[in-house]
Design a protein around this nucleic acid. Sequence first.
DNA 1: CCTCAAATCTGAGCATCGTTCAAATAGCCC
DNA 2: GGGCTATTTGAACGATGCTCAGATTTGAGG
Lengths: 221, 221
Amino acid sequence: MLDAMEKEGSYHHGDLRAALIAASLQLIEEGGVQALSLRKAAKKAGVSPGAPYHHFASRSALLAAIGVDGFVLLRREMERAREEGTTAAEKMGCCGRAYVRFARTHPAYFRVMFRPELADLHEFPELEAGGSSAFELLVQTVREGQSEGNIPEGDSDAYVLLAWSVTHGLSSLILDGPLGADFDKLDVREDQLADLVVGALSKLFQGAAEAQRRGVQLTEG
Amino acid sequence: MLDAMEKEGSYHHGDLRAALIAASLQLIEEGGVQALSLRKAAKKAGVSPGAPYHHFASRSALLAAIGVDGFVLLRREMERAREEGTTAAEKMGCCGRAYVRFARTHPAYFRVMFRPELADLHEFPELEAGGSSAFELLVQTVREGQSEGNIPEGDSDAYVLLAWSVTHGLSSLILDGPLGADFDKLDVREDQLADLVVGALSKLFQGAAEAQRRGVQLTEG
DNA sequence: CCTCAAATCTGAGCATCGTTCAAATAGCCC
DNA sequence: GGGCTATTTGAACGATGCTCAGATTTGAGG
């Protein structure tokens, strides 16, 4: 599905399916998700307005296919980034930075991946599976960090959710939030935001783990 | 703008502007942002398809107005929640929980507030101002926490961003992410997620502040 | 090589959408 | 009442998602 040459030359168009996805990505990058119409994608692929419906049941199905590709790319980039760290805490930081980098580098994919009104997760189980796949990588890394002592014990689920929320939240704020207009007040450049936030989270994780090791009871509030 | 009775009885319709916003919110809650069309909102308000354009320059402008209302509501609920905490760390936790609660309680508002393709921040400065207003509340609270010793010193900007990213990320994941399908694997109910994640962040903040107080150097990685 | 069914594509058509605009209407100040 | 402005109408335009009957191409089996 990621390979545009999958069926080249075997049908009338070659591989209209891949051509439509490529055209769609280009349209989305030029003018946002709203700028994607099946008719424009069809014209870009040199085909009539009705042709796409032999490859995608609807506009949503096209977007779902793009989202699936996006999750594959994200998972791949996170796995690659993970190998740059030695301790689990480092790996988690690398994953987080890769997540944010992915959002900034592939905004077209990222938006489609997290817009259920464009491609519903229940309607396209492949999309849901893609999301779970990326999620599992974080679960694994946090568990490793706990056994290494870099992440406080207990509440494993909470720390996983915390890590994912941080990276996803920062990505969303950079892409769609008022952060793009506000971050200049913060005396940091946009490309440093991920380092800053993920770094702060790492500090907190390690500091809290150290405190716990010294017998400090971690309480909420 | 929040008051639906603002101009009641003074024009042909009464207050078409407010009626359109009310109708729009209803449509969005029923079928998502995509289910809102100016024509349907107009019909719901008992008015012709062209009438809305005397109150909103475009569909985007209508959505921007809704977003502005949303930011007012969010800011109000965060301020109210803040007063339930005594220390700054507690206040920050309350803000975070209120943020997530707002997203779950008012998904229609929340989505519009963070969809620049629906209502561009540059095009509607009021929207941008609304976002900044909510953001400032977090800045203030984190700064208070640092002077109280509940939040580690230094990197003030990073901790603000961290706190906002966490709350915004969790909200986004609950509303639009694959979390809705995955959280059952985590052995927690959805309404506990905010407590769990915000609580984890609070623990980290306090643990790290305690470690710093005992002379531990907080390093990234 | 020929046949024929299946896959693929065309192009017209339908309903809906955002948006514009001239003309009609209602409210308000003088 | 006169006249001005705000408001509303209803038709119109172009674009969209999607459907469908029919034309075209492909590839496998005789």
